[in-house]
Amino acid sequence: MNPQSASIPASDAAQDAPLARRATRVDFQTEDDKDMLRAARDLTKDLGEAKPGIYWPDMLISAGIGYGGIATAILTDNIAIAIAAGIAASLALYRALMFIHELTHIRSDALPGFRLGWNLIVGIPMLTPSFMYEGVHVIHHKRTQYGTIEDPEYLPLALMKPWSLPVFVLVALLAPLALIVRFGILVPLGLFIPPVRNFVWQRFSALSINPDFRRKAPTGKLIKRVRWQEAAASIWAIAVLLSPLVFDWRPLLTALAIFSVTAVLNQLRTLVAHLWENEGEPMTVTAQFLDSVNVPPPGRIAEVWAPVGLRYHALHHLMPSMPYHDLPEAHRRLKSELGDQSTYDGANHAGMFPLVGRIARSTMIR
């Protein structure tokens, strides 16, 4: 069944954009708003340089707080302190983990050593090395593949059954265990059983939500990255599996619980990153933008559940290579130039709960 949609012609965008984001579905063939696209280009020409002085401290401090929180939760005998430390660790590690998104868009020479440093400090310890996103996420940004069956990061969640939303979120609780199995058991098996290796690569080597997505073999520079990152993550996963033989079960179970909370938080953020109203049709750039979500200030809580620029996800789809630290200024300029009733304003939403409500209501009217 095709989704019902309301047409939002470019000439009427200023009048209808607020309605588009609050009540009606996006017209997938909405004519591109050339004024908005031109403004996005012209108003941000002086932005776009990734700054090591922001990236490195942000990532290192987040990771440090996260690992410190895990250690505190493991070592303390006070339940309240353990819970508080675990929550702090989950939030901090979530922020540190989200730099994987930046790694897929910044130029390889923009931040010397950052990809390696992030993988050693965050990606491999959390069993999410950058190869699981590199070469995958860029498909989500391709003009002709966004929202289609070829998009690894798109599901028409707003068009599915109501029970699919809680299942989509809660299945993330199993993500840490699944990653341990992938790297600690299946990767070693794949060294001796090629069909296992091929199956794992195609089905379990991408941070995707589309169950029909099959990953193609790596090419170019990614081949070398995959080899060393997968080997390092496999060694770490095996060490984690064997750790109860040296320690007791508490460190492992505590870390798994904290990582599960991080995974669920990321899944909640994913749930409201788009409106999920496309059932596989190609979309115009403006339609893709309106199907994506900004949760800009004045609210501050979005910086917790959508960190490292992800609260400006719709804007990111207009300017994928813009560093996260420049997105707030880019948003301010576009909002000021285009106004409250513009097409640009059509992708700005109030927060997580209104978005979840919109998607939930949509699943109930199918």
Rank of each mutant, 00 (worst) to 15 (best):
Y344G: 04
A10G: 15
P57Q: 13
A273W: 00
P9Q: 14
L157M: 13
E279T: 09
L355K: 07
L253V: 14
A13Q: 08
L120I: 15
L315I: 01
P18C: 09
V240I: 15
L103Q: 05
V187W: 00
E102H: 04
K51W: 10
A360L: 15
F353D: 06
E279I: 09
T262K: 07
V226T: 03
N2P: 12
H317A: 14
P328C: 12
A82E: 09
R311A: 06
L91C: 06
L242M: 14
I121C: 03
V240L: 13
F99D: 00
L91H: 02
T262L: 11
A92R: 00
S234I: 04
D291K: 10
R269Y: 08
T44R: 06
R269H: 08
R227G: 04
H325P: 02
H141P: 04
T343K: 03
V226P: 00
R269L: 11
L265Q: 07
T284K: 09
A14K: 09
A330Q: 06
L290Y: 05
A314Y: 02
I301L: 15
I193P: 04
G357K: 14
A14E: 09
I365M: 10
D248C: 08
L155E: 02
L116I: 13
A13Y: 07
V167C: 09
G86N: 10
L290K: 03
M364D: 05
L242N: 08
S342T: 10
R366E: 10
L173H: 00
R361W: 11
P194W: 03
L253N: 09
F199W: 11
N266R: 07
G357F: 12
A92V: 10
I235Y: 03
I61W: 06
R95W: 05
A175S: 12
P9F: 13
S11F: 15
R333Q: 08
A231C: 07
S205R: 00
Y94I: 03
S362G: 06
L355D: 09
I100D: 03
I74Y: 03
